[in-house]
Nucleic acid binder design. Structure first.
Lengths: 341, 341
DNA sequence: CTGAAAGCGCTTACAG
DNA sequence: CTGAAAGCGCTTACAG
């Protein structure tokens, strides 16, 4: 790529590089004639400014970054889409970075991005934040909002804002509903260690609901797997084969719920008549399964909107206080739950 | 972010910046003692080099870029994951860029990325390439592989390699199978204009199969929508309400097929007894729907592997010839197709 | 094994 | 409205 640069354009146009730079950046102080001529030459030569050089020189950039942990989760995709829209309304540019699990530490990526792109602020989606990450975080002194992430209780939350849901309460509502429908033997399928904080919190909500309804906890009803259809299928198979008395399943994600439902229907059991099932997240998978799967819907738009609002509050006033918001989830009952006796 | 830079580190360590740079980049020519001391100082101060500056200075980078068009398609996600793995085996770094539809022209992004990251090569996933894009492409003279994209016939294919599938033949196989099962009234649901080339090619395959089986084409059976469950649902509703004689549906994507299937089951029709259905892509949605939806599976691993191989062939030998590969798809018959009288 | 210096391609006061 | 010059934070010959 021995390509054309700003100096070449300046020479071709017979002007100084500053003038070319002004045209590129839409500064007003350029004679119309000159501007048009330069734009023409830029176009003809397919000149594209080198962003590394720009970033190096510019102090801020009107760039805000989104870093998404756990690459291909449709739940995050929806949040990102929504954020994208509101950010560009504010005349900010978005830098998206997906980091697959195999890459370096979350926080290190964050810092690299901040330096490289001169980010004005960052929204971090997903991932796990413990005290170690937090040591990095403190050094950041840049507006930061962490959304839908697992933040350990021991983390000092003074350096960033956050938005999430109340996992315990959400799981509680779902399982309490199952109990109210008369279910006593309720299986728990969860997405396991990669998501351990969510898992633990939702499991706690499940247990709370059972206890409140006078049902004792049975460890044999717990299964840990992955965030895939396949895993849901396999967990349901193992769970139901070993515990045929189970009449309902609570799953910590819709994807797992769909996999489980598929297994149930494959064995000629009926949903909800033989087994009731409820998922978590509120993704379309569940709605378009047949029968439609009930779920605890996360307020995706609200999560996105709050994240953006908290971020801009900090960008516009560095002294503004951090805030940590827990949003309400929405229990959506569809066709996958029946009452028992 | 008034943060620490290489000069500060050098000063703290009492050495020159070149030595620090050597340590950062793992150059061998540094006394072990010095190296350790510098590494120590780097760590203590949480110094992270500024990538913009590095990129500006370095000629190449062992970076290869993947640009994904049409942001959140699970089909592309799978390809990316696979590519990611093989690339890192070769000791190359990956730069991922998702560009949402609202952003600038495909090719312009490509060029920006190449300059900014000093990319050694690019794999472009999805999108539409016509002659206009190709004008840019020619300027690139960097190894480029376009995968799973719509490349217009009039594009001069000498500047890049490509890997894709035979859309016409794949659609033909699916619809021919439906015909062989005795279906004569076969609806066509497609993902519409945003994907026009795929749509046109697959439609052509559909028509070819009908013709071969002596079935005349009926424009009333065509529906154009979007790449969503919802759209599949709505298209099926409209199609079947207006054409109750239809016994089978071919959809240009699994997502649309699932939406359509959901509509069919919601009206107490049965799949496959009342309506047969087949999708396209080979995603898990269809497999985990109940009943499992038949599909034309794209060879995802092969697409990824071929893209990587073609790219490295060019990286290692700029004079190597470009190649344009069409991979075979795989007709997967599951539980969604029944024969008709 | 090490350091001083040039330069990557830009932007931005500053002076006109 | 315009240009010459400094400098962003690095890397890389070059000279020692």
């Amino acid at each position: 790529m021995s390509s054309i640069n700003i100096k070449d354009i300046a020479k071709l146009a017979g002007v100084g590089v500053s003038t070319v730079s002004r045209v590129i950046n839409n500064h007003p102080d350029v004679k119309k004639e000159t501007r048009v001529k330069i734009q023409d030459i830029i176009e003809k030569n397919n000149y594209i400014p080198n962003n590394s050089a720009r970033n190096l020189k510019m102090l801020a950039s009107n760039n805000i970054g989104i870093i998404v942990k756990g690459s291909f989760n449709p739940f995050f995709s929806k949040i990102v889409e929504r954020i994208e829209r509101s950010i560009s309304n504010e005349n900010y540019l978005l830098t998206l970075h997906y980091n697959s699990s195999c890459e370096k530490d979350d926080s290190e990526i964050l810092i690299e991005q901040i330096k490289e792109k001169r980010l004005n602020g960052v929204i971090y989606l997903g991932g796990n934040f413990d005290n170690k990450s937090n040591n990095y975080l403190k050094l950041l002194n840049i507006p930061l909002v962490i959304a839908s992430a697992n933040i350990s209780d021991d983390v000092d939350k003074s350096g960033f804002s956050s938005v999430g849901i109340d996992n315990i309460d959400s799981a509680f509502k779902a399982v309490d509903y199952l109990c109210k429908m008369g279910h006593k033997n309720i299986g728990l399928l969860s997405s396991g260690f990669s998501d351990s904080n969510n898992r633990n919190l939702r499991t706690f909500g499940y247990e709370k609901a059972l206890l409140k309804n006078g049902i004792s906890i049975n460890i044999d009803y717990y299964r840990d797997g992955y965030y895939t259809f396949e895993s849901g299928y396999e967990m349901a198979k193992d769970l139901l084969n070993k515990n045929s008395e189970i009449t309902a399943i609570f799953s910590t994600s819709d994807i797992i719920a769909v996999g489980a439902a598929k297994y149930i229907l494959s064995t000629n059991r009926q949903i909800p008549n033989d087994v009731s099932i409820i998922g978590f997240d509120g993704l379309e998978y569940g709605e378009f399964f047949h029968p439609s799967i009930s779920t605890v819907a996360q307020p995706i738009e609200e999560i996105a909107d709050n994240a953006v609002e908290l971020l801009f509050r900090q960008i516009n006033d560095m002294e503004s206080l951090n805030e940590h918001i827990k949003l309400k989830t929405n229990l959506i009952i569809r066709d996958s739950i029946a009452s028992v006796n």
